[in-house]
Amino acid sequence: MNYIWLALIAIGILTAIGTDIYEISINKYKNGVEFQAFLEIEDDFKFGTQLRGNIIVSGDYFKEFYSLKNFKVDSIKNEITLNVNQDGKGVLIVKIGETTPEFWKLMAKGKGVNTDKLIANVFNLEKLGDGKYKVTLVFEKISFVKMKQILNAIIEYSDIAVKIAIGLIGVMALWLGIMKIGESAGLINLLARLVKPLTKRLFPDIPPEHPAIGAIIMNISANMLGLGNAATPLGLKAMEELQKLNPKKDTASDSMITFLVINTSGMTLIPATAIAVRAALGSGDPAAIISTTIVGGFAATIAGITSAKILQRLKIFRKELEENENQKEVQG
């Protein structure tokens, strides 16, 4: 886990730095380069006040200016505000909206702040008549786009993490409460006894009638039925029970890993999310993928359990468990 975690972060940051430096070297965002366009001003023209209007750019000019490969728009029309002084110098603000070309959206996003607009300095304004003007401008400097996106991602994802955890509190409490009743009534034990032939093989180090088995079975059933809301609390309940049996509290036991692999392979009988998206996008047969998904999930589960069972015997993965046993002997 240490390596994977480090790798994700390191690869991410290095790629971002590399991309940013490359983009600076080719001046991808044409920082400091003069851009020419036409304006249509709706308000009565007056120097020193904010005027509303549109910027008009031909698709070919835009494509060539930013050296874009795939750009198929004939003409760009985008909402702006303009404020110029008598000497023809001033500020033009491009409002990012639905008609804004993707590349400008990307530039605005890359600023990190005020991402709803692009600001440009106006150097020359030439009147063509009838509210139409020809303008020469230079957009604000844009660099380190990827680094800014990473910065945003860091903040956004730490927030999401807490929101997910907080969102779990309710269902977690509900299912832990229900499970407690089941335990006190002996229902969980009964459940465990029913599936004993199967679980004996999958989880040899759990006593057959331990409450962990009951929770595991309920978690797997919930997953099969696509009941994600119930599956996670039941799975965490199972982990809690497995942890009670675990001799080394900071290290995963064989049973825990087998159980987790069953969960990460996500065997389900009804892929509800995928079906819903397909239906929403107008599929002729949204449920066509049920059989293929069951086969895929089944294969993933079998491969996961098999590899967990084989890997747990390997020396490198036993080491952490045995270190513990040696320590015990020394302490004893």
């Binding site: 886990m1 994977i4 799975g235 965490l236 982990m239 809690e240 497995l242 942890q243 509290k249 900071d250 290290t251 995963a252 825990m256 890993i257 987790l260 692999v261 969960n263 990460t264 392979s265 996961g304 590899s307 967990a308 890997l311 747990q312 390997l314 993965f317 952490e320 468990l321």
Partner: peptide, 17 residues
Amino acid sequence: YFGSVNIRKTRHAVLAG
């Protein structure tokens, strides 16, 4: 799942997953 029981050493879990 590992976080809920404070497990930090995950052994072969990632590889099997």
